[in-house]
Design a protein around this nucleic acid. Structure first.
Lengths: 187, 187
DNA sequence: CCATTGAGTAAACAACTGTTTGCTGAAATC
DNA sequence: GATTTCAGCAAACAGTTGTTTACTCAATGG
């Protein structure tokens, strides 16, 4: 799996060959079948690995509480740190979210759906969501998750200066969204 | 190019073979070199084709004026119509925006940057942006473009019922963003 | 009307592809 | 201490890959 992740730095998953993977891993082609039935099988395993670490991140980003301003700064910092530490995983998820291999795509979608539900639950418990309908809370949760994934995807391929710009913009955007949240009238 | 687009329904660009493309196009392998130096070359040509039609869409989505509510409904409808009529192009852009082939990725990024600038200019001319700083307008433009691309990407792989849900959510999200815009204090 | 160009072809090249088979040796289990 | 499982190997299989070469033939243009 590490070998595959290394190769995926420069290509998409649907362009990966299994001989290529075993060569990079330093073993014989036949050895592959001891661990996975398919390349798609490996892909699904990579999704689970990649989004397990992301799971902790989501929790961390929503854990702290205090002023909205500080909350946002903290969340963006958590994302940036996560990307720096798990660049290959983030790239993989960003690349294959709409990629060409159906089982991988579906595994990512299923996992992101779980995140969205988790975020929705966290939002519903905040006082700011008092009186909100279920659909409205979901809608905001999707907005947050999509924004988080897109920010991570952008950061993953950014140098130091670009990273500064992206995080600055992300903070502003989150502020605008939270402003919209405060003035929303749910019905 | 049509043949390639057809093959890209079920795989990513970095998994495409040129023999595969010529076979689908009904010609001999050598014929490929009469039109493109590379597969990457073909990819860049596809980006231009795909985003030329999207260019019209952006214009159309921002053309109408009236109540914010109607504006949003109109914009979402324009997006949904576009996806239905250019499904293959939309899928290609969504898939390769963070895909494994650098020249293609960069061509998409450059074209989306042009859209963002165009949207930013349109926003700056609206009365709602009076007194806004340049960076704040850019930030909102990026939010809109990203949201549009992501909505299109989701729609591209949706059936009729899912499409209904996605457009409903997208409208709500745009309303929230526009609400945030109204209460933003630029500095 | 003749020359040039554009767009196509077939054939050949070595290199690489996914998968199966039968084999080995170490580790774990009973 | 014997046996079963685990994780690896080399070799072979027919197909497929990107690229080059020398060729045809219709359309275009002066």
């Amino acid at each position: 799996m590490d070998a595959a992740l290394r190769l995926l730095e420069h290509q998409s998953f649907s362009g990966l060959g299994m001989r290529e993977v075993t060569r990079e891993a330093g073993m014989s082609p036949a050895g592959f079948y001891r661990h996975f039935r398919d390349l798609a099988d490996l892909g699904v395993a990579l999704v689970e690995e990649a989004l397990a670490s992301l799971h902790e991140m989501v929790r961390a980003a929503f854990a702290e509480q205090g002023e909205p301003e500080e909350l946002i700064d903290h969340a963006v910092k958590v994302i940036a740190d996560h990307v720096r530490e798990h660049r290959a995983h983030v790239r993989f998820v960003a690349r294959e979210r709409f990629g060409g291999v159906a089982p991988v795509r579906e595994a990512i979608a299923a996992e992101l759906e779980r995140f969205t539900e988790e975020v929705a639950q966290a939002l519903a418990e905040q006082p700011a969501s008092a009186g909100w309908g279920r659909a409205d809370v979901r809608m905001v949760a999707e907005l947050y998750v999509d924004h988080m994934v897109l920010t991570a995807a952008a950061l993953q391929q950014a140098d130091a200066e670009t990273e500064r710009q992206i995080t600055a913009t992300a903070r502003r955007q989150l502020r605008l969204i939270s402003l919209g949240r405060r003035h929303w009238v749910s019905g």
